[in-house]
Design a protein around this nucleic acid. Structure first.
Lengths: 226, 226
DNA sequence: GTGTAGTGGATAGTTATACTATCCACTAAC
DNA sequence: GTTAGTGGATAGTATAACTATCCACTACAC
């Protein structure tokens, strides 16, 4: 298959495919001649996965590269690949804080992130969840906890207990759905798509549910004092 | 309060505050002289909200503008403001598809999005959820359904039934937590932060739970055939 | 008074991301 | 033997979110 056919079949522009090849998202085709290379169904399949991660999961190209590297590396276990995919979904440490005293942050921000971080770590220990100490989701959760605290949504991580009970159950179903007997790359793909797509799905469903519930509670009332 | 003090107290750089003023995210201070304006605690508070929406929720500046406009517009009901915040959280219609025949998409992509869209709309009707027909989350959910279908995660929206039952319950708790007696702007802020932060929190918790469950199922095994 | 740090406002520049377009030597098929 | 198309390289574009510079001016210290 030539690049133009790959483009047609995947719906991805030729220039974009070339870009993905350069970035290492897509394996190069079999070079038949200096200006002739052969692509196959694996390339179509890979492009579908790439587009799904970008469009559905909102991953950056760099995150996709990392994720696909784990998919392709046969020495990475399914479990470890899950970890990579999960970190790729976390919004890439939005708090680098390069330790410069030049930032306008004076005596403010009494490291609420660290407080929340400790709280989250303690909470995870109480629940006996086996997660890497450096899992990106830990930090992410600590940041959302800090934000919720600031705006009057309670102070302790036990705020998340209900969510966690349900998430554990749901994650069990999702992981259980995967068949360890099928071939490794399909299993990986399915696990990764599941990780990103169900997360988006839950977000969307939650927003629909919130809209429905807020209609029940606040609907038809045209404003609430000033 | 002068701009430098506002910067110190909020931890946002002066240049960034000026940028937010230009973009209309922050109300201008009270102008005392051509080069003197006065900012108050409301500005500090607003900056905290803006940063939380951007850092925790990952919203774009444009989405924040829209959300804050709803917060400030006293004629917008709480319920409608929820809708605005929810749409701001959806990843801004990543499928504009400007109807150009020039795109490389030939006869492929048998509008799976539309099929999934119909399926999602039917599913919502079955559940009797009251949501705007143009809610962004509908489209988003349809897209994730299409992705899940493509990768072998089942075909019907009933895949989401469990998620939806739980989301409904959780959304009820969340909306119920809001006190309609408190002043409008605090209520709005709390509702909006809740919408964005709990969504991120659930995502993070879900990833932690997935990691835990995948450890139980796949951990210690070093790869699964090739 | 005079100097100077800081201000508000405008405008221009920067960095990063994700493409998109152009160029070119070449070649396979008509 | 022409020509549409290819692979590969390189350059350009668009957008987002800042960041930096400039400038006339002014409040306050001395």
């Amino acid at each position: 298959m030539r690049i133009s056919e790959l483009s047609e079949r995947s719906g991805v522009a030729v220039a974009t495919i070339k870009y993905y090849l350069r970035e290492g998202l897509l394996h190069p085709g079999l070079t038949l001649a200096p200006n002739r290379a052969d692509y196959d169904d694996e390339h179509v399949r890979r492009l579908r996965l790439i587009r799904a991660l970008i469009e559905v999961g909102g991953l950056s190209i760099a995150s996709v590269v990392q994720t696909l590297a784990a998919v392709d590396d046969a020495s990475v276990s399914i479990h470890d690949a899950f970890g990579v995919a999960q970190d790729a979904l976390s919004p890439a440490t939005p708090t680098p804080a390069p330790e410069l005293g030049s930032t306008p942050t004076g005596s403010n921000s009494p490291t609420p992130c660290t407080d929340a971080q400790l709280e989250v770590d303690r909470w995870l220990r109480r629940r006996r969840w086996k997660v890497r100490p450096d899992a990106a989701a830990r930090t992410e959760l600590a940041e959302t906890l800090a934000a919720l605290q600031q705006f009057g949504w309670g102070h302790s991580a036990s705020l998340f207990d209900g969510l966690a009970d349900y998430a554990l159950e749901q994650a069990g179903l999702e992981v259980g759905y995967l068949d360890p007997q099928q071939d490794r790359s399909s299993l990986m793909e399915q696990a990764i798509i599941g990780t990103v797509a169900f997360e988006q799905a839950y977000g969307a469903i939650r927003r629909l549910a919130l809209e429905h519930q807020s209609y029940q509670r606040f609907g038809r009332r045209r404003s609430v004092s000033a």
